[in-house]
């Protein structure tokens, strides 16, 4: 969407399908019409098993978790070993830096940072990396599966896409025009 001008019009088509309808054929047809997967979105009230669209996922979440865990271990070592060294005070004849303690604290901070970082990364992925113009339709909450397609400012294309959705068995098709702020 880099080539769109500042306040370009954007048509968004939403087709509602019965969950029993297979969406694969219609998605294939849309692809053959030159609509990339990036501009399509399948909306459902519960997770669907098969991935219908092929979209770049970004950094896998588990890798972020592992990185967070490593950072967390560092934080734990700083607290349990580092702060003890910063101001060494003898207590009970025990070592200033004791390895079991470092282990326990690092374990907890590893988990803490790993979980928090995973959550934040997930929030970024869910909350910020979404297409503009997707509207929550109450009928999707009630058990329909939605297919949302962005077609830019090409009105003819919008109509052909909406025809295609109807032919594929959509119970309802809506075209909305929004101002694209990108």
């Amino acid at each position: 969407m880099d080539n769109t001008t500042d306040m370009a019009e954007q048509h968004v088509i939403l087709g509602l399908f019965d969950p029993k309808t297979s969406l694969s054929p219609v998605l294939d047809q849309l692809r053959s019409q030159g609509i990339p997967d990036a501009l399509m979105e399948v909306l459902s009230p519960l997770p669907l098993e098969t991935p219908l669209l092929n979209k770049p996922g970004g950094i896998p979440l588990h890798r972020i978790t592992i990185m967070g865990g490593v950072v967390g271990i560092g934080v734990g070592i700083f607290f349990a070993a580092g702060t003890a060294w910063l101001y060494p005070l003898v207590t009970g004849g025990k070592p200033i830096v004791s390895i079991p303690v470092v282990g326990i604290i690092s374990y907890e901070t590893m988990m803490l940072v790993a979980i928090v970082v995973t959550f934040l990364a997930m929030a970024v992925k869910i909350g910020f990396k979404q297409q503009s113009g997707i509207r929550q339709d109450p009928r999707i909450d009630e058990g329909a599966v939605g297919l949302s397609i962005q077609v830019g400012d090409d009105t003819a294309k919008a109509e052909s896409v909406s025809r295609l959705l109807q032919e594929a068995g959509a119970s309802e098709v809506e075209i909305r025009t929004i101002a694209d702020h990108v």
């Binding site: 005070l89 003898v90 207590t91 009970g92 004849g93 025990k94």
Partner: peptide
């Protein structure tokens, strides 16, 4: 005590050697 049990358990170093 040289190895005082009360010392290491204090979370704020109020008890130390």
């Amino acid at each position: 005590c040289d190895d005082a049990p009360c010392e290491p358990v204090c979370p704020v170093y109020a008890s130390y050697h």
